[in-house]
């Protein structure tokens, strides 16, 4: 059975993605990321000397500042800041620049659902643009569970509101293998663990794992997209230098 969606997408189809790097002049790294109508602008400053209070000076410290589209920062934004900070701590190699602080500023340009996943994707692209050492890319996705327990990817705001439950998941990017398809199947035991999981609404435990599988299946196209967008600049630079 196929769930009907307002905008005519299939259940596992994402909205059109776009990602632009280095759009801010003064920032050390910046990126804008949009999923359909949701758009986030991320800027990275740093690493700057010194860490904040209560942080471990033997590691690099990450600071996230969330700017809503309008109005004051509230509890929701505080929670987003905390989740983003801890997610980025996972992907950054923190030992390279000990006793430094890297600031990531997230500016919401437009919110049409899946805001946090879009912000995570934007922040990750901005970190790549700033040349901060990363272990891997974070790939964030949101999943909705409809009343008849059908799983839908990348919901917009209207769908988020009408759904029974909502799951935000962050994985690391899928590995680009030089091996051909068949040998990859053998190596599939290297399972992709989740970096972050946030849920809203009541669902059964099985439904959660169903969303997990759906999300996991969607990370390959998303990480291919990110890889393509983030690699292009390096190649351009080489051609200019050559």
């Amino acid at each position: 059975m196929e769930a009907k969606r307002e905008d005519g997408r299939s259940a596992t189809q994402m909205r059109p993605l776009s990602c632009t790097r280095s759009i801010l002049n003064r920032a050390h790294g910046s990126a804008s990321f949009s999923q359909g109508e949701t758009k986030i602008l991320a800027a990275v400053y740093g690493p700057k000397a010194g860490t904040k209070k209560n942080e471990n000076p033997e590691k690099a410290c990450i600071e996230v500042i969330w700017k809503p589209k309008s109005g004051q920062i509230g509890k929701v934004e505080k929670e987003y800041e905390m989740i983003l900070k801890r997610t980025l701590q996972n992907i950054c190699i923190l030992n390279v620049h000990p006793n430094t602080t890297t600031s990531i500023i997230i500016q919401v340009v437009n919110d049409d659902g899946s805001l946090l996943p879009c912000a995570i994707n934007a922040a990750c692209s901005a970190l790549v643009d700033a040349g901060i050492p990363l272990k891997y890319l974070a790939v964030a996705i949101s999943c909705c569970l409809s009343e008849d327990e059908y799983c839908v990817l990348d919901p917009n705001k209207l769908e988020e509101r009408n759904m029974k439950a909502l799951v935000y998941l962050v994985f690391r990017n899928s590995i680009l293998s030089v091996l051909d398809e068949e040998s990859v199947e053998v190596g599939e035991s290297i399972e992709n663990g989740i970096i972050t999981s946030v849920t809203h609404g009541v669902m059964s435990v099985n439904n959660y794992f169903q969303c997990l599988e759906q999300g996991r299946a969607a990370i390959k196209p998303l990480s291919d997209f990110l890889r393509k967008k983030l690699r292009s600049k390096v190649q351009n630079d080489v051609s200019v230098a050559g």
């Binding site: 905390m82 989740i83 983003l84 900070k85 801890r86 997610t87 980025l88 701590q89 996972n90 962050v170 989740i194 970096i195 972050t196 999981s197 946030v198 849920t199 809203h200 009541v202 669902m203 059964s204 435990v205 439904n207 959660y208």
Partner: peptide
């Protein structure tokens, strides 16, 4: 399941 929260 009401919530499964793993913040990074």
């Amino acid at each position: 399941l009401v919530s499964l929260n793993k913040p990074g």
